[in-house]
Amino acid sequence: MTERPILFFDSGIGGLTVLRETRIFIPDRKFIYIADDAAFPYGNWEEDELKSHIIDLFAKLLNLYNPILCIVACNTASTLVLKDLRRAHPDVPFIGTVPAIKPAAEQTRSGLISVLATPGTVKRAYTHELISSFASKCHVRLVGSAKLAGFAEDYLRRKPVDRASLKQEIAPCFVEKDGHHTDIVVLACTHYPFLVNLFRKNAKWPVDWIDPAEAVAKRALSLLPDADQVQTLTEHLDLAHFTSGRTDYATNRLLHGFGLRLTPLGQE
């Protein structure tokens, strides 16, 4: 029987942060990484059009690859369509990547939390529901950036990043209130952990930067059938597909560094 893969999905290459962590917990499973770069950035889409686009694309992906589970390694997509995907495909487990507001509220000492996200994630009702449910006693600053995901894509391809602009994008995360300071920033976009060293260098003061990748990886492990959690390691490169069909040398080199082999959509 052909091994059923774990499918990762993101608008670009940010989901590689989640893939990297998941491999630690599930080292012997085959992975397929889908980058919907033809539609990147998702922030430029109208909400209803983006929802229809992602749902239609997933119908195609599930038919092509028959994954054992799907990880939506994108906060924008997760907060927008996760419920619809689960309803449309009840036999496939879907794991979303949503802002880590609950652990931030549990860990903060000052009570001041910031959520650094894309504009779409910031305005999503799902995000505000998380705050109401888990951080109602905290002061939560939502910071939406239209630039940082693109900066991360450039940074990973070793292109220059405008450091002054990056500093300006994260500046609203740092809040002073009644003698207290923000002490936790939630990285609510899977692209952002790739920039965390630059964030630290340009922060107004030290904070904890929370990345949900480990929690997503643990959840994926818990959803695999017991017989699938221990397998004989096979010699292969996991696969990556870009919906645009276009990649450059820097992207190919990056994917190879993550143990991924670039192939056309639907081919192995």
Rank of each mutant, 00 (worst) to 15 (best):
L224A: 02
P193L: 03
D56L: 14
P119C: 10
K177E: 09
L61A: 09
G12E: 06
N202I: 07
E129V: 11
F8G: 10
E47L: 12
K167P: 07
R253K: 14
A146M: 09
K159W: 10
R124Y: 03
L112F: 12
K83V: 08
A77R: 05
G43T: 06
N44Y: 03
S132K: 15
A100R: 02
L237N: 12
L233P: 00
F242H: 07
Y42L: 09
P103M: 10
P119I: 08
I170Q: 05
T22L: 04
R20H: 15
L130N: 02
K30M: 09
G259L: 02
H191F: 01
I170L: 09
R109G: 00
A213F: 01
I6P: 00
T234P: 02
V143A: 07
H89D: 02
L224D: 01
A149Y: 11
E268I: 07
H181A: 01
L224I: 01
Y65A: 02
C70P: 08
S132F: 03
L254R: 07
F9L: 03
I113Y: 08
T79V: 14
C189D: 10
E47A: 12
S110V: 00
K177S: 01
Y65M: 01
V81W: 01
G15S: 05
E47V: 13
R253Q: 13
A250Q: 15
F258Q: 00
L116T: 06
S110Y: 03
D28A: 10
K167E: 13
R253V: 12
S136P: 02
V18S: 06
N63K: 13
G96S: 06
V196Q: 14
D228G: 07
V186P: 03
T2Q: 14
L262W: 10
L221Q: 11
R109Y: 09
A220E: 12
H241I: 04
I101P: 08
N252D: 09
N66F: 14
L221R: 14
C138W: 04
F31G: 07
I34H: 05
Y42N: 05
N44G: 11
L221F: 07
S11D: 05
T263F: 03
T234N: 12
I24P: 07
F242S: 09
R163K: 15
E49N: 11
P206W: 12
P90E: 05
F174S: 09
T263Q: 12
R86V: 02
G120P: 06
L255F: 14
W209D: 13
D36F: 13
V185T: 09
L57A: 15
Q231K: 02
P103R: 01
K159C: 00
I113V: 12
S136K: 14
K218A: 13
T121A: 00
I68N: 00
L156H: 04
A100Q: 08
N66I: 13
P193R: 02
R86P: 05
R261F: 08
K218M: 11
R219Q: 15
E153H: 02
V230G: 08
T108Q: 03
P264M: 00
N252W: 06
A217I: 04
G96D: 14
L85H: 08
